[in-house]
Nucleic acid binder design. Sequence first.
RNA 1: GCCGGAGUGGCGGAAUUGGCAGACGCGACGGAUUCAAAAUCCGUUUCCCGCAAGGGAGUGUGGGUUCGAGUCCCACCUUCGGUACCA
Length: 968
Amino acid sequence: MTTPTNVDGEPTDETASVRERYDVEMAVRIEERWQSAWDEADVYRTPNPGDADFDPNRPKFYCLDMFPYPSGAGLHVGHPEGYTATDILCRYKRMRGFNVLHPMGFDAFGLPAEQYAVQTGVHPRETTQEAMDNFRRQLKRFGFSYDWSREFATIDPEYYRWTQWIWLRAYGSWFDPRVDAARPIAELEAGLAAGEVVPTDDDDEPLDWSAMDAAAQRRYVDGCRLAYLGEQTVNWCPKLGTVLANEEVIDGRSERGGHPVMRKPLRQWMFRITAYAQRLLDDLDLIRWPESTRIMQREWIGRSDGALVRFEVEGGSGTLDVFTTRPDTLFGATYMVVAPEHPLVDEIVAESGADPAIEAYVTAARNRADVDRMADSKDKTGVFTGRHAVNPATGERIPIWTADYVLMGYGTGAIMAVPAHDQRDFEFARAFDLPIRQVVADAVGDAGACDDWNEAMTGGGVAVASANEAVSLDGLATDAAKATMIDWLSATGRGRRRVNFKLRDWLFSRQRYWGEPFPIVFDDAGNHHPVSDAALPVRLPDLEDYEPIEADEPTPPLGKAAEWVRTTAGEAGVDPSVLPPDTPVRREINTMPGWAGSCWYYLRYCDPGNDSRFASREAERYWMLSDRGEDSTPTVSGETSFDASRHHVGGVDLYVGGAEHAVLHLLYARFWHKILFDLGEVSTPEPVGRLFHQGMITSFAFKRRDGSLVPVDEVRETDDGAAVEIATGEPVERIVAKMSKSLRNVINPDDVIAEYGADTFRLYEMAMGPLDASKPWNTRDIVGVHRFLQRAWRLAVDETTGELRLREDADPDVERALHRTIAKVGDDVERLAFNTAIAAMIEFVNTATGVGVTADQLDRFNRILGPFVPHFAEEIAARLHPGATGGRSVVLAEWPAFDPAMLKDDSIEVPVQVLGKVRSRITVPADADAAALEAAALADERIRELVAGKTIRKVVVVPGKLVNVVAN
RNA sequence: GCCGGAGUGGCGGAAUUGGCAGACGCGACGGAUUCAAAAUCCGUUUCCCGCAAGGGAGUGUGGGUUCGAGUCCCACCUUCGGUACCA
């Protein structure tokens, strides 16, 4: 193919003459040589504060890659994209004198590994270990400058010990709204006992603490924990044998595997992430993250401002609360709807004489898989419950319906329906012939008949027909009408202002084997007790039968470890002050979800060997706390010794990974971090100060005329660039698609390295285009960057002798070009624009080719090349400084300086436009002022011809850039 | 539907702040070298008209602002992500 190879058989003069050529054999030899040399010299080990070789005078830079989930398939080309980018930046930062923390490890608990193990019948411990070994081998082959001494996997007991420890901190804390932060649960108990904290019920009504018995008090405190046991309707996936978080369910199917998911009430460990909703929202403004990701998190948290309105229900149960963002439309509420799961519905169904149609509808709605519920979301269904409520504004009797377009999980699970001003209510009212009453108009007196409307009027306007004896909204603009209505509701006890969030508490239990055990046990009364910190980790028992139990009832596989489950408080490590050691207990048999380990791994890297804390305070503080420059001072939530005027809110200086984690992982990690911050365990309110998403690497595929896709190996590309399907001879169109097995367009990194070497691979992925853009892999283009390395090699090395080819005296043009290149590459690396940095280096080599460079010039150029192609540059460095020890390594070198004066030319060529079109060019001194430029432009012969006989209206001069003559 | 990103030569892409559109690479074409080929080096390569000098058009489409728009504004089309009855 395009790879240069030596001729087989008898060596000829020709083959001998290119023995020192940079081809794949040479690349591989160089790469292996330097990788083992770096390994031996341990050059990438990063000292921590306190280490003998730690230099506290250097600034720090913590650069993190999203650690991989080691699948059996090995690394795909998307992994090294982000990893190469951070590697270049880290190498650059080291050369600029930073202490750089750049770690790597593995996220190894979780469903995919376990599913794979179940399929193959090999224990997940083994498959995971194998996959990690393979990933590590592949990663090392790229020559990334990770400090491998910091490597760990989330399945290491010494790691998940601290995952459990952090969970215990959440278990042992509550969220105090008075300080808007987490506090130890002991402070809640003390506050309750002293009467400083008043307990409240579900409706925020105060309770009498002293009147509660011990069990009730315990229940109350347990209900306040940040990690708590909650009865929830969960997503149960019988096929996977586990419950799933809402985020893991897509269109009613499991994200992994696409299996159907059912709704089922279950008692499970939850995280009170909702307590942090506002802070998670607010602090998004303080971090340098992609706007798209911050928007997605904002939408996920989903704050909406409105009111809680209380409706009297006729007969029986008293009241029905609804949440609405449009309290100004209360006069237009002509009916109510409750979710099929709403308690009021249960009550009605239980009554004798209830319409059997109600129960039929509710049963059907509840059992309906979410898939179906989505599918016909267009058609509204529902049934009248037979009950009525009273509209508190109009005093009218309005019917209460139940319908599945109202969701139990949001707000109160009940709504007031205002069909004139809400599209969903409008459609429902039309379907069931319910009254529609307009209460908002474009202008006063503008109200017309809404009978002939095709859709609801959902925007703002002026309130109309909205008055009773006590309050009138008529004539008020929507915002004012909302405020007036809320005031009236509050004053009369009919409602109040209310902020509601879409975000729900995080379901944290899984009925699977391959995850972290919870450090908690239950006594015979069913009360839970924590395992003491000193007894951690609670090790995952080594089950031989780890298969999930496919059943309609959740049955965690850990239940099979009977001896492990049934134990005593003392055996389990419960503190004797909590439970006497001989108390029989059973362990929690659910495990934590795959997200757990990735919620805090960036903290462990700060000090991965520490066995007395998740990381020493000193190490955590050094790597996570960043001084800010002259930036504006942000406000920071929570109670803290953190100094917002001095420090950035985020710890990790740069975190690079795919946008697919924009919400889940990145929101969970922020939440855990904030708990730890509130408890004084970490130094910053946010885990990550700057986030960057690398784009997806796609591939080419082909499309038939009918739109169907054709695998790449069933297509032949013709010389004129067209493509035909081999089987039919029909022309097909080349398109960009995700890499997939079915299209057979998946690129294996090992193959590419075997053909070109790791340096070429690295360089190609960085040259493809902007780091954050999705871009297609084009095998044909790789040769371009490989040829660049060959030219660069040839610039430095004589291919026949292997001797360096160096000039004695520097060529001034080459010297100037070198300064420009150093400046441009440094600038581009800082802003992660590696593609243009590479273009600049190619230009330099093209400029210098045929002219030659001095040893000093080669040395400087080689140093800017180093971060991109470290093996290549190390080889050149070694040849430039033969016999030199360590100190001349390109890894440890300083980034070369440039002289700003060398970036400017003495004279420049400036385009001259007439009416915005370039008509001529003039050569002027670089510092020519506007007057000189104008004079030179107007003196230009071609310009004089063109403006002859015309009036010069204006001359626009941009010094150094252009001249535009406006003449007509 | 809603939110966000992107549409530039045959292809990947460049143009950092409103100032020379197409850097750099691939491919293609031509030349040098070679017995020949590979490799390498040099050159051409947005499109149209023209022998040339030169002229015209041109950054998804249509409008606008400006001396000047790939870049800013309005409307729309295509495409890729995200999201989906959230009251």
